[in-house]
């Protein structure tokens, strides 16, 4: 069985590596994307001020504080711990706890300075206790890069595997394989491994490049991050295999894959945080494996989480893999009619 998997894997890898055009595209496209990001975000500015409201529910009953009327400020309800972390690393300008009559500010943050002045001017003297919270700034690029890496893994795993399987089925190569002792799971395992190797290779390359070019943050465990990338890749390939289990036309496969990738790209928190989004959007986003992969990756890279901290996400990714592999293997068809 292992031997059969490796036979298919080896041939698939040869085919892929010799297809210079596709290979080049798979490596060059994400690199270009990252280079573009670097050019756009090296300034690292943003237009809105963000303020966390700790214990927002308690505050809701009381008459609104005049500070909450300030224009161009985004007020986000948040847990105390998370809010303080984010103030410390410059993701938030201020965190306010109306119940305790206290606010937290990073003394080194320009946005914080500005927000504090506004808060003071719309408050009575002595109304607030000032608490400092300091740490390295987290820029938008730091936050965005895990998203870009994840998105690249998503496209590579879904489209790369989906199209190849559909092409093999359409041209009859799968039919030829059916006449051998090869089983569907073995074929699928080989496809997963092949794509996993590519996705991890490209991701490592991109990760290295972003560390070098953009000096992005990496606070936590490298091993944990690696595991997140591996499990994310496998779960996304599984979805690709399930989508391509019996499709025989590239057009239909493309449609199905777009149906999955677009919502994931918009709702998994690749480009912007969903923290301020409506509750139902946040819940919806939880069905996408990419959401969990990105949460885990950011917890590790930005806030120094370890393996134990991201275990729930890893388990979710493993579960997703199991579900979609089962679907894929059950639905799998070798031939086209």
């Amino acid at each position: 069985m292992i031997q059969r998997i490796f036979a298919i894997l080896h041939a698939r890898n040869l085919e892929f590596l010799r297809d210079r055009a596709t290979l080049g595209w798979n490596v060059a496209m994400p690199l270009l994307l990252v280079a573009g990001m670097a050019a756009i975000f090296s300034g690292g500015d943003r237009s809105e001020y963000k303020v966390a409201l700790i214990q927002a529910e308690a505050q809701a009953a009381a008459p609104a504080h005049p500070f909450l009327e300030t224009r161009y400020f985004d007020f986000i309800p948040m847990e105390r711990g998370e809010a303080l972390d984010r103030v410390a690393n410059h993701q938030l300008d201020l965190a306010i706890d109306f119940g305790a009559g206290a606010y937290w500010i990073n003394p080194e943050s320009p946005g914080g300075y500005f927000a504090e002045r506004l808060l003071q001017s719309s408050s009575k003297d002595g109304e607030w206790i000032r608490e400092p919270a300091s740490g390295d700034p987290i820029s938008y690029v730091d936050w965005l890069i895990p998203g870009i890496l994840g998105m690249n893994i998503m496209f590579s795993c879904l489209f790369g595997v989906g199209y190849v399987v559909v092409r093999y089925r359409k041209n009859g190569f799968l039919k030829r394989l059916k006449a051998t002792p090869l089983r569907p799971v073995e074929f699928m395992a080989a496809q997963i491994l092949s794509r996993l190797m590519l996705a991890i290779f490209v991701t490592l390359l991109l990760y290295g490049a972003t560390r070098l070019l953009l000096d992005i943050r990496m606070e936590g465990s490298g091993l944990a991050l690696f595991l997140v990338a591996v499990l994310a890749s496998i779960s996304l390939v599984s979805i690709g295999l399930a989508m391509a289990a019996r499709v025989t036309s590239e057009e239909l496969a493309g449609g199905l894959l777009n149906l999955v990738t677009w919502p994931m790209m918009l709702l998994s928190g690749v480009w912007f945080s969903l923290a301020g989004a409506p509750q139902w959007v946040q819940q919806l986003s939880n069905i996408f494996p990419l959401t969990h992969a990105l949460t885990a990756a950011r917890d590790i890279m930005l806030y120094g989480a370890g393996l134990g901290d991201v275990l729930p996400q890893l388990l979710i990714l493993a579960g997703t893999t199991a579900v979609f592999l089962t679907i894929g293997a059950t639905m799998f068809r070798w031939r086209s009619a």
Binding site: A11, R12, L14, E15, F16, R18, D19, Y168, N171, G172, F173, K175, R176, A179
Partner: peptide, 15 residues
């Protein structure tokens, strides 16, 4: 046990 030669069969590219 069986060996099969199809009337037409696609193979992998680049191999």
């Amino acid at each position: 046990d069986a060996g099969v030669q199809f009337q037409t069969a696609a193979l992998q590219d680049f191999i």
